[in-house]
Structures are given as C-alpha cells and as structure tokens.
C-alpha cells in the first residue's frame, strides 16, 4: 500500500475515533455548566478515587434554583433532560400537576460494563437537584441507595 495512503488512513482513523468519543456528551452537561458556578447553586464532582466502595467512577450533582424567566429557565432545563431521555434505556418519571417532579433515566452504557444514570428532582421550593452517576453499579443498586437516603 502506498505510504501516503497509509499515513492519511492513520490520521483519518485517529480523527474518527476522537469524534466517536466526543459523541458521548450529554445535554444535561449544559445545565451543570450554566448553573454550576452561580450564587445559590451547589455543584459537586467526585471521581473514582473516592467512590470505589460504591462502584461509582464519576458522580456529579447540582442543586440549584432555575431561572424563573429567560432562555435558561425551566423550559430549557426540561428540554435538556428530554434530549438525554430520548437516548435512555430505562425511564421512570413522576409528574405533579402536569410538570416533571422527578426523573430517573438509565442511559446507554458509556463503555462495556459502565452504566450511566441521570436523576432529577424538584422540591416544593422550586429548588432542583440534578445528578449524573457513572459506574459499574446497576439500576437496582442505585435505587436501593436512593431509597436508603431518606
């Protein structure tokens, strides 16, 4: 095979693999980006080194007060969640007065054996909590973990 062809093939494979990796991005990541550093928000990130005992490799949570109006208000947040929900393998939602009160979404695996979950809940004071969890823990383990938290 011509050396130049081999060279450009290598470059193409490199770019293709990088773009495939880039597609793992989530819309809810935008919510973390937008609200994470705001006054009134609390954003946490914990990685595998402190989460080994829970079979979790990445934990991100955001507690925030969504904007009452403007382009990044409730409708934008729900739209972001809806986009990720479309890719979800498992969806569990509760609605209150026609609005999303809580959502539990299991996304396609990040890679073999690595499950991904998005959790969302709004409390009465219109404070929202968004959590992203990635790890080897399964759906049942996560649910039992959540059940023991109250």
């Amino acid at each position: 095979m011509n050396q130049k062809v081999k060279y450009y093939l290598s470059i193409l494979l490199l770019l293709a693999s990088m773009s495939a990796f880039a597609q793992s991005g989530l819309y809810t990541e935008d919510i973390f980006q937008h609200y994470g550093k705001r006054h009134g928000s609390t954003m946490v990130q914990l990685s595998a080194d402190v989460l080994k005992a829970y079979d979790v490799t990445l934990y991100k949570s955001l507690s925030f007060h969504p904007e009452a109006s403007g382009p990044y208000g409730w409708s934008w947040i729900i739209a972001c969640i809806d986009q990720d929900k479309r890719r979800a393998r498992k969806i569990k939602e509760t609605m209150l007065d026609g609005s999303l009160e809580s959502g539990y979404y299991q996304l396609p695996q990040a890679r073999k054996g690595i499950n991904r979950f998005i959790l969302f809940k709004v409390n009465g004071k219109k404070k929202a909590t968004l959590i992203y969890i990635e790890g080897t823990l399964n759906s049942a383990e996560l649910v039992s973990m959540l059940f023991s938290k109250k």
Binding site: T42, S63, I131
Partner: peptide, 18 residues
C-alpha cells in the same frame, strides 16, 4: 473532599425516596 462528600449526600437525599 469531606465537604464534597457531604454535599453529595445532601443531593442524593434530595432525589431519594422515602
């Protein structure tokens, strides 16, 4: 890390079930 863990627990409690 301790503070981060505490805040993470709070968030899990917020989305948890009773």
């Amino acid at each position: 890390v301790q503070l981060a863990k505490e805040e993470a627990q709070k968030a899990l409690t917020d989305v948890g079930f009773s």
